[in-house]
């Protein structure tokens, strides 16, 4: 194996982190948006799962950032315009920012509400701040706004991925889907 050849596909661990977090994050957004309006019997359970998965996703994004730092990534196609390259970098930065700010703002919101968050019934998250209604209001609104920004960013990201895969038919989508060139 020639280790000087640049990689074209993300390693398995990166792809696993990407897709598992994609599924979880999209679920969290859908559940999050519906649970705050729902008066259904399942709502309290959905809420408690949402908080638990939020804590898990915070751990996962930290692992992911460490992985990103330690991993060589496939390069973007040379012919891609500077605008598209910048858009890609901006979108990815926004995604990482959201992946950190969403669970953090949720955690701060709960602490400011004086609520104890149990992570899957295993342990309680420490309280980050004292209970305070203004702090709660800030992080509650921040969490909601950030969710919408994340949705817009994800839509952009998905559309761009499909554009690369279906229209341009370059290696970009493939680099996150496969481990080697498919037959």
């Amino acid at each position: 194996m020639n280790s000087r050849k640049p990689i074209k596909y993300y390693p398995a661990r990166s792809r696993l982190l990407h897709w598992s977090m994609a599924v979880l994050i999209i679920s969290m957004l859908l559940i999050g948006l519906s649970m705050v309006e729902s008066l259904a019997v399942w709502q309290p359970l959905a809420l408690s799962l949402h908080k638990s998965f939020g804590a898990l996703l915070l751990l996962m994004v930290i692992i992911r950032l460490v992985n990103k730092y330690l991993t060589e990534r496939p390069k973007l196609p040379k012919k891609l315009s500077k605008l598209k390259v910048m858009a890609a970098k901006l979108t990815h930065f926004a995604l990482y920012a959201a992946m950190l700010l969403m669970p953090l703002s949720g955690w701060l919101m709960q602490s400011a509400d004086g609520r104890t968050v149990s992570v899957f019934g295993l342990f309680n998250l420490p309280h980050l701040v004292d209970a305070n209604i203004k702090t709660y209001a800030f992080f509650r609104e921040f969490h909601a706004l950030m969710a919408w920004l994340l949705i817009i960013t994800i839509v952009t990201h998905v559309l761009a991925a499909l554009y690369h895969g279906l229209v341009r038919q370059d290696r970009v989508l493939a680099s996150m889907l496969y481990s080697k060139k498919p037959k």
Binding site: S38, L39, A40, V41, Q43, P44, L47
Partner: peptide, 8 residues
Amino acid sequence: PILRARSA
């Protein structure tokens, strides 16, 4: 169902 709705 009423109890479950109170929280929301």
